[in-house]
């Protein structure tokens, strides 16, 4: 419908818009001011002690949040599909809430709660609570779609008729069919937590993005290098998500086509 040359011009312009900041940032991170180019900024990053601790903290937080998603959210989604389809609305609602309540408003609410016990609020792992909800929409969507495609009611009856109880049904029938979605949900959660800035910055925790922001104020080249590093991290995580998603689609093709017809 759109002229072919117009189409190419449009796509090219958009490609420049999306590629330019990345290319410029790479060049910026490699520039030595007047003295040409070199990987100085990256070397400087490695020798900086004050970045490792935040990175480690962010990674720990991400792992803790993934654990919460897997141990608290996943069982709830499975149980709703298995036993209480009507409660699904409730989970849907919970999964929209993080979008309705902006991150900054959530922090505001949490800082009202901050008069709580110091052992909880003082620990960075307090962040796991808001992070759980920031990751919830993505993780929930991934798991919910995968379970919907399984036709759990049918599977449950089949498993029951073959003599499997609830525990075994979940462990032997549901979980093996769900693992690509679980990997997907975990990686999405990981990506969200690793990039989260708002909550940590306001609550004054030194996570990785907060540190990038601090570095950026004094060392622009190093900040550019960090930007590239974090872009690559996001890219790798999402690449894995896409690959897992594509493979699982192949594996589950009959199930999916059956569910959609």
């Amino acid at each position: 419908m759109i002229g072919k040359s117009l189409r190419i011009v449009f796509l090219a312009a958009l490609f420049i818009y999306f590629a330019l900041p990345l290319i410029m940032t790479v060049i910026f991170s490699l520039s030595r001011g007047q003295a040409g180019f070199g990987p100085d900024a990256y070397v400087a990053l490695l020798s900086r002690g004050d970045l490792l601790a935040p990175l480690w903290m962010s990674a720990q937080l991400a792992l803790a949040t993934v654990a919460c998603i897997l141990l608290v959210m996943v069982p709830a989604v499975i149980a709703v599909h298995l036993f209480a389809p009507r409660l699904r609305m409730l989970l849907e609602l919970a999964a929209i809430l993080p979008f309705v309540i902006p991150g900054i408003a959530l922090v505001a609410g949490l800082s009202v709660l901050i008069s709580g016990p110091g052992w909880l609020i003082g620990s960075p792992f307090f962040l796991t609570l808001p992070y759980f909800f920031l990751a919830l929409p993505y993780a929930y969507r991934a798991i919910d779609i995968a379970i919907s495609n399984l036709d759990l009611a049918q599977l449950r009856l089949a498993a029951a008729s073959l003599g499997a109880g609830v525990g075994r049904t979940i462990l032997w029938v549901v979980m093996p069919n769900l693992w690509p979605a679980l990997v997907n949900a975990a990686l999405m959660t990981f990506t969200v937590v690793l990039g989260e800035f708002t909550v940590a910055n306001i609550l004054l925790f030194q996570t990785f993005p907060v540190s990038i922001n601090l570095v950026g104020k004094s060392e622009p080249a190093e900040a550019a290098a960090l930007t590239i590093v974090s872009f690559l991290l996001t890219w790798i995580a999402l690449l894995i998500v896409l690959l897992v998603g594509r493979n699982s689609r192949k594996t589950f093709d009959p199930v999916q086509s059956g569910a959609s017809s």
Binding site: L20, L22, G195, E196, P220, A224, T227, S230, T234, L238
Partner: peptide, 25 residues
């Protein structure tokens, strides 16, 4: 999928490096 998740601090720095007061572009 990648670009939609490329927001926040890194994105801000990418643009500062490019189109900031002293950005490359």
């Amino acid at each position: 999928a990648v670009a939609a998740n490329f927001a926040g601090v890194p994105l801000a720095f990418a643009f500062i490096s490019t189109l900031g007061m002293f950005g490359l572009l």
